[in-house]
């Protein structure tokens, strides 16, 4: 269980990490973000845990960008967003990279693949430099980096499209892509 704040709420998050056992993180995330920066937010009151965002993310990161055709690709596409069940009130929530200001993945990266984009404040992974040591996965307080075949996989805010695949497909409009202020405004 890890305890942390999202949008002013406190939640215990139970998750399984990708090594197959329950992952109890005692890390307190350094949760402060650049206010201008865009990222994916989730309105937990609306999230039904349908995992459509995961599917859309995987499709967006496939070669064909098509649900059916992606199945035929040699390397199956992977999602970079995860839907977590939150045990309080049976809520669920979709979590992607939070693009932390003091990102622990950037600190932990031994090859310098993980870096902060100074302009946008986005946390990025230079796929050419990644040496698949999985340090970023170990330290990520949100558990939103996963193992790809040749690199770590994390939310790249859909560089190939103007909006975000997960936000566009969310059937309950729980997801929102934008700055924290905009999201707060939307919640009102």
């Amino acid at each position: 269980m890890s305890l942390f704040r999202v949008q002013g709420f406190e939640f215990r998050i139970y998750r399984k990490n990708y090594f197959g056992f329950s992952h109890y993180s005692s890390l307190t995330p350094s949760y402060s973000i650049d206010r201008k920066m865009a990222k994916i937010f989730c309105d937990i009151k609306k999230c039904t845990g349908c995992k459509t965002c995961e599917l859309a993310c995987a499709i967006e990161h496939s070669k064909s960008k098509d649900l059916f055709k992606a199945l035929l690709e040699d390397e199956l596409p992977q999602s970079r967003i995860t839907t977590e069940a939150i045990l309080i009130d049976n809520l669920s929530m979709s979590v992607a990279c939070q693009h932390c200001e003091n990102a622990s993945c950037v600190d932990a990266c031994i090859s310098g693949a993980m870096y902060k984009d100074k302009k946008s404040g986005e946390t990025k992974c230079d796929l050419d430099k990644c040496v698949v040591c999985w340090m970023c996965i170990m330290v990520c307080p949100f558990g939103v980096i996963s193992r790809g075949k040749k690199t770590s996989l994390k939310c790249d805010l859909c560089p190939d499209r103007k909006d975000y695949a997960c936000v566009a497909t969310c059937p309950t409009k729980a997801l929102y892509g934008g700055s924290r202020e905009e999201f707060k405004e939307k919640l009102k």
Binding site: L55, I59, L67, L76, S146
Partner: peptide, 28 residues
Amino acid sequence: PQCGFGQLGLCCTVCNMGPCRIDPYGKG
């Protein structure tokens, strides 16, 4: 966009241990 699990036939609502979904791309 319509539900990808539904389109692929991977959502099972047969019993109340579910509903269950299979990840078509293998990670889940």
